[in-house]
Structures are given as C-alpha cells and as structure tokens.
Design a protein around this nucleic acid. Structure first.
Lengths: 161, 161
DNA sequence: GCGGTATACTTGCGACGTCAACCATCTTAG
DNA sequence: CTAAGATGGTTGACGTCGCAAGTATACCGC
C-alpha cells in the first residue's frame, strides 16, 4: 500500500483542485461583494437576492416556500430574512385566498425603490469581481458547467422511522 | 445606449446568470457535502479543510495566519476553529523559537488518523456531487476559469518554511 | 364526516464566522 | 535605549443560518 495509493491520491488531488478553487473563489468573492453591498445599501447578499426574486416575480409576490427554493435558504432562513425586510418596510405579508397555509411575500413600493437603488451598484460590483474576468463565451461555458451541479437538494429520506 | 435599453437589460441578466448559478451551486453542494461530512466524521467543511492543509504542510504545521489565508477565514475564525480541533485532540499549539508572537498549529497523530479516516469518504462525496459532473477537460477548464477570480494566493506549493 | 399524511410556516437553540478592540511581540528610526 | 508602528493572535458582542420540533392547514382514502 504505497505507490499505488500515491497515484490514486494524485488523481484525487486533481479532482479536488477544482472543488477547492470553487470553495475559495466563493469565499473571497462573496466576502468582498457582501461587504460592499452592506456598506452601500445596508443589505445582505441574501436580502438582495430575495428582493431581486420578488422584483422579477409576477405580481411582485412569491410564496415563502418558492422563495426558499430558488434562493437556496432553508424555510426558517427565509422566515427570518423576511422578518428583517418586513421590519424595514420593503416587503409585506399577504395571505392566500385558496390556501390558508401559504403566506406571500410581497414587495412594497419602498422595496422596489430600495432594490432599484441598490441594483446598479451591486451589479457593477458583481461585474467587477466576477463577470469582467471572463469573455462572453467563457461566461456562457461557466454557466453551463455550474448548471450541472445539483441545485435542488435531494431530501434525505433514508432515515425515516 | 440608443434604442437598446431592453437588450442592455438582457445583457445585465446574462452577466448575472452565471453569478447566480455560482451562488446557488455553492449553497446546494456545500450544504449536502457538509451534512454528509458532519454525519460521517463529525467535521465541518472548514475543519476538514484545515486538517488537510496541515496534513500536506511541511512538518504538519502551519502558522495560524497562513492557515487563515489559504483557508480563507478571518484570523478570529481560525482561532475558534482551532480551539475546536484542539479540544478534540487533533491539533496542538506549538510556539515558534524565532518569533514569540506566532503560534503554530500542529497536526497530532490523532489528527492524522482522523483526517485519513475522513478523507476517503469525503473525497468520494466531492466526486459524486461535484467532480463526476464533468469530464477531465471540463474540470480543467472550470478550474482555470475559477482561478481567475480574486483570491489570496494559493500558497500550497513548494514553499520555504 | 374521520383518521393519517403531506405541506406551509414559525420558533428555540446551537454552530459558525465576522468585526472591532485588545494584548503581546517584533522591527525600525532617532 | 526608546517610541512608533507593523504583525500575530485572542476575545467579546453580534448576525446569520440550519436543524429539530411544533402549529396550522390541506388533501386523500375510507
């Protein structure tokens, strides 16, 4: 168990490299980005993300579950995030006539304004720290590759009682 | 800027798309991976990362600052992470003879064992959730693209102690 | 109608990680 | 030698997020 394992290990390292870069790149870019967004607009990356989703949604409203799924936060994460946005007056709750369980998150006028105000500079930051590093083709290729990763979480049903 | 307002916006979306996928992919993959690592080995992704850095370091030791730089955590983050690893007995402190300010983090025998034990399954998970989605060429391309993003120098090379 | 299960959402709690402030030590200039 | 400033490291207060558990509502088979 020596040289065989070494080459095996080398292979593993080769497969690990991209993943490590992915991790580090994410950490570095998001830190920069969220610091800027925070200081410019007083928003979290997730805050902005949610605002953006709502902004583009039909009727400027989305069920909390759907929000959670697209933004990739847990349900509780969404609840708390929206708490903040509601307190700031950028989002309101609205109940659903046909299903009393669901609560919509609705973008208010203030929320739209906030989002519109924050958008330009945040997009510019994204561009500077991320987009500008690639050509159009490369961006497309990158997007395609990233799109293959499992975005929807497989639920761990293996541990049912 | 003439009559191309719509396509301008479309362009913005096109530039945002890859970033959003990047964010989402990171969230999804990372969540899955850390859940598995946690349940299999009782380790955080960052724990594992630090263990791995130490494992590959000359003398199995690294200054805390360097650790922070390569793992992309803040200095305080490293302190707290290492607190945990020390409590578990996988890492020890060691002082530096030539500079009393620095504290080395040194992998213990137990730490090596722990890392070796966790490595196989974690690498398999990374492979399943990340590596296996790409061909060798694609992985290389992805790695190159990600490498252009702003991070602190990947320091794990043939380096002077 | 009545149970049983699935879904939408909230809440308690703990883990993790950041910033700001702090102490200790090294280095350099005068 | 000493004062000033950089560098390594720790700690306290705080924010964010996930999981587990709980509530409320809907749907399905009988």
């Amino acid at each position: 168990m020596s040289s065989q394992i070494l080459s095996d290990q080398a292979q593993h390292e080769a497969r690990l490299g991209p993943w490590l870069r992915f991790l580090r790149a994410h950490a570095a870019v998001t830190r920069q980005l969220s610091a800027r967004l925070e200081s410019h607009a007083g928003l979290t990356l997730s805050d902005f993300d949610v605002l953006a989703q709502l902004f583009h949604a039909p009727d400027r409203r989305l069920r909390r579950v759907d929000l959670a799924r697209t933004v990739l936060l847990s349900a509780s994460g969404i609840t708390r995030l929206l708490d903040g946005l509601e307190r700031a007056g950028w989002v309101e709750k609205a109940s659903c006539a046909s299903d009393a369980r669901v609560t919509y998150a609705v973008l208010t006028a203030a929320g739209e304004a906030k989002f519109s105000e924050a958008r330009a500079s945040h997009h510019a930051d994204i561009d500077e720290l991320f987009g500008s590093r690639f050509s159009d083709d490369e961006r497309a290729a990158l997007s395609e590759l990233l799109g293959r990763l499992p975005m929807t979480e497989p639920v761990c049903e293996s541990e049912k009682t």
